[in-house]
Design a protein around this nucleic acid. Structure first.
Length: 623
RNA sequence: CGGGUUGUGGCGCAGCUUGGCAGCGCGCCUCGUUCGGGACGAGGAGGUCGGGAGUUCAAAUCUCCCCAACCCGACCA
């Protein structure tokens, strides 16, 4: 009775040694005697080498599932749930189970090592912030609904951390001299973002760990160095994580600042489109990408003329209409509401507006298409007959591709009537020219003319040159070498830990399960016992001890289960190496050595198998 | 926020049309036989059928309201 309570109540690792227990109690829990003896014999040495408790699958909580939950679609989502790495609490919030947390910590540790290597100093800042600090930068208002806000008992407003530019800037306001610079500070800490639509398991969540680092330099040249160092470190991180990465030009969005680079990994589960030139290497997020357009001969500018177009409501219909015009000779007029202001956005008939580009060039925060009633109120006509000709009471933003175009056709702001002979610069009061159109696959690269491709990607990291936006808001000033007080140049750099864990699965899986890279595998090696008897346990234990002593992360599959179950589980959870001990091989003095990724299997003498695995793991980790 | 789908034991599902004992497969527990690729037999445990209200002698099933999750879109660092 007492013995059973011990098993139920005591977590692995605090089991008393045999000598501390009453004789007889332990006979009821014989497997625990093995653990106790192991700790008794090897405890001190293991404690130094590997601080964690011995890992026996029979004692591990790894709730694997034979079927994926039906609401999981992305491979990483399915496999991380099926493999017992995590469970969902509610939309966008996941509980990390022992296996999942182990991987998460390994990912975080790789990131930590690489940021340390570039001179980063780890900190930990609060996750709850007073509203005042966000009001100081202006982002209390501009961040919108993405920020979780809560009110405390005194009625004071607070925010949960979405990012930490403001908070690090307040810390940095203690900097006073260029002699203290450069500084790079970072943390690996929880972020909360009230995403409109959490999805795909860990790929888009509302609560997650991020490594965010911040650089502080006296001048732009210093910022360039910090940025470049992060660029290099990030590439190394993704390489170590086994996640293929592409660095692309990106929109800075709500971060502000001069320029930013995103790191992307190709995946159907992603949410971003990346424009790539297969020839010269041009790469940009579609929110930023441009392309070269063939020139169009419009002939000589004609006169503005209104004509009847009964029932014509679309670009396509006008192109087919007798007396109409091809789509690339039409103007598409989009009525948008930018921060409450009705704005006409004009692009070529066959082009699509990219709203992020519109946001970037106008600085607008809240952008939405106008409702039909708003459109009619503003222009006097319904969608399908809209145009910007002679409109002066609303701002007009036009795409660069329309500069110099003449003889264009567009809606006349009277239902069932259009204008032809439109000279864009003559007939439209364009307040702002900007690159607004979204690149399509097959268009020519701006650098080399090669046809561009578009690839779906997951954003796995993002680095920003912030400049002085936050240092000016928070008074982060230092004296430079000339004795002049200048605002510090800041950069910020983010990697989502859980998202990279998921991205690693997206990039490394097969029909049987996950193929973890050695660097972040929950265990490097699993020792699979085909039968759980004394001989087998003893043989497994010997190899286990050897691997543990070498610092290898090893799991002993001592479960009383059939071979197929053990094989399938170890393949599902993706342990890179498997040492199988079976009665046949044992009789001959051999173990079976299997690589998860290739499936290659060979017989290895029992006396050599641990050494082979150690060498294998070390080689994999060193690369 | 708009559109769509789905909520029934831990996971996967049937039952709902036509109201009438809450079922199946996997998993779990016990015993036995097995044991190198997700065994077999026997016995067992486990469910306020997402929640509330209503209709009815009777609701998983019909009606109304609400909630949640997922997918597409919008949005997004």
């Amino acid at each position: 009775m007492f013995g059973h309570r011990l098993v139920a109540d005591d977590p692995i690792g605090v089991v008393p040694t045999k000598s501390e227990c009453l004789v007889g109690v332990w006979s009821e829990v014989s497997d625990r005697v093995d653990i106790a003896e192991e700790r008794h014999i090897h405890g001190p040495r293991l404690r130094r080498a590997v601080p964690s408790a011995p890992m026996r699958w029979s004692q591990l909580f790894v709730p694997t599932l034979r079927d994926a939950p039906n609401d999981a679609v992305a491979p990483s989502h399915q496999l991380l749930v099926r493999g017992g790495f995590m469970r969902q609490l509610h939309a966008g919030h996941y509980s990390m189970l022992p296996l999942g947390w182990k991987v998460h910590q390994k990912v975080a540790q790789i990131v930590r090592e690489e940021i340390d290597a570039l001179g980063g100093q780890e900190c930990l800042l609060p996750t709850m912030h007073p509203a005042a600090i966000w009001k100081e930068s202006g982002r209390w208002d501009t961040m919108g609904e993405i920020m979780f806000r809560l009110t405390d008992r005194k009625g004071a407003e607070n925010a949960l951390s979405i990012t930490h530019e403001e908070i690090f800037a307040t810390v940095a306001s203690e900097l006073s001299s260029y002699k203290q610079l450069p500084q790079i500070w970072y943390q690996i800490q929880t972020k909360f973002r009230d995403e409109a639509r959490p999805k795909s398991g860990l790929l888009r969540v509302r609560e997650f760990h991020m490594k965010d680092s911040y650089s502080f330099d006296v001048d732009a040249a210093g910022l360039d160095v910090a940025f470049e160092r992060h660029d290099v470190a990030y590439r190394r991180i993704f390489e170590r994580l086994g996640v293929p990465s592409i660095a692309v030009q990106a929109s800075s969005g709500a971060m502000g600042g001069d320029s930013s680079v995103e790191f992307m990994t190709p995946s159907d589960a992603g949410e971003d489109d990346v424009v790539l030139c297969p020839d010269c290497g041009y790469s940009a997020n579609i929110e930023k990408a441009t392309s070269a357009l063939p020139s169009i001969d419009d002939g000589a500018a004609g006169e503005l003329e209104m004509f009847d177009t009964p029932g014509v409501r679309t670009i396509k219909a006008l192109a087919e209409f007798d007396g109409g015009a091809a789509a690339d000779h039409q103007l598409k007029t989009l009525v948008m509401i930018l921060d409450g202001t009705v704005t006409l956005v004009v692009v070529r008939g066959d082009h699509q507006l990219n709203t992020q580009k519109l946001a970037d060039v106008t600085g607008a925060i809240d952008i939405r298409p106008a409702e039909t009633e708003e459109t009619v109120a503003a222009l006097g006509a319904h969608p399908g007959s809209l145009g910007a000709v002679n409109v002066t009471d609303h701002p007009i933003v036009a795409d660069l591709a329309l500069q110099g175009r003449v003889n264009m056709t567009t809606g006349a702001n009277i239902d069932d009537k259009h204008h032809r002979g439109v000279s864009v610069e003559r007939d439209l009061t364009v307040g702002q020219w900007a690159d607004l159109r979204e690149v399509s696959a097959g268009e020519a690269c701006v650098n080399c003319g090669t046809a561009l491709t578009i690839v779906r990607c997951i954003e796995i990291g993002h680095i920003f040159k912030l400049g002085t936006k936050y240092s000016e808001a928070f008074g982060v000033n230092v004296s430079n070498a000339d004795g002049k007080v200048v605002p510090v140049q800041m950069g910020s750099y983010g990697i989502g830990i859980g998202r990279n864990m998921a991205a690693a699965v997206e990039a490394n899986h097969d029909d049987k399960g996950i193929l973890w890279p050695m660097s972040i595998a929950p265990f490097h090696v699993v020792i699979t016992l085909m039968r759980v008897d004394d001989d087998m346990l003893a043989a497994g234990q010997t190899i286990y001890d050897e691997l543990r002593a070498a610092g290898i992360d090893v799991l002993l599959d001592d479960r009383d289960a059939r071979a197929g179950v053990k094989f399938a589980d170890s393949e599902l959870i993706g342990i890179p190496l498997r040492i199988t001990l079976g009665p046949r091989g044992l009789k001959e003095g051999n173990a079976e050595y299997t690589e998860r990724a290739s499936g290659d299997t060979s017989d290895v003498p029992l006396s050599d198998v641990a050494a082979k695995a150690i060498e294998h793991v070390r080689a994999a980790l060193a690369s």
